[in-house]
């Protein structure tokens, strides 16, 4: 029975391919719309992996302790094609992340909006954003 139902769910997943964006997996199943999070942190690691890239940041808490958060982005292939590399977001870069926390309440969130502290968007091609034109960042 379980096998037949698994077949069925595969079919519906494909049937619903007119969904708004069609990311690799259902973000609404992973992250919680009732838990919006906005964090400022320092990049400690960029996992340049598929199906989704993950940016790790250290966030300083009000009591002085530091919590490491993982931020989920999209497929790195798209950025590679636009000339970014795995070195385009070096450790130590300060970023601001706006998104939603994971439903299991671990320190994971989606990178719904990622900017630098001055508001410039990450990975969009102006100087200092890790763009191919910004040689110092590579």
């Amino acid at each position: 029975m379980r096998r037949n139902l698994a077949i069925a769910i595969a079919s519906v997943g494909l049937l619903s391919s007119a969904a708004p964006v069609g990311a690799h997996h259902a973000f609404a199943a992973e992250f919680d719309a009732t838990k919006p999070v906005k964090l400022k942190g320092v990049v400690t690691k960029m996992e340049w992996i598929n199906p989704h890239a993950w940016i790790h940041i250290d966030v300083k808490n009000a009591d002085g302790t530091v919590t490491n958060w993982m931020v989920e982005g999209g497929s790195p292939n798209t950025l590679l094609r636009n000339g970014f590399t795995k070195n385009s977001l070096p450790p130590g870069t300060e970023i601001v992340v706006d998104g939603y926390q994971s439903k299991d309440e671990s320190n994971k969130m989606n990178g719904r909006d990622i900017t630098f502290p001055d508001g410039r968007k990450l990975f969009v091609g102006s100087a200092g954003t890790g763009s191919p034109d910004s040689k110092s960042e590579k």
Binding site: A19, P20, V21, A23, A26, F27, A28, F31, D32, A33, E72, G73, G74, S75, T78, L79, Y100, N110, G111, R112, D113, I114, K121, L122, F123, V124
Partner: peptide, 13 residues
């Protein structure tokens, strides 16, 4: 829910 489903910045699309 729709905002969560939109996942991430436009730059990844």
């Amino acid at each position: 829910e729709r905002d969560v489903a939109l996942a991430y910045n436009e730059v990844w699309y």
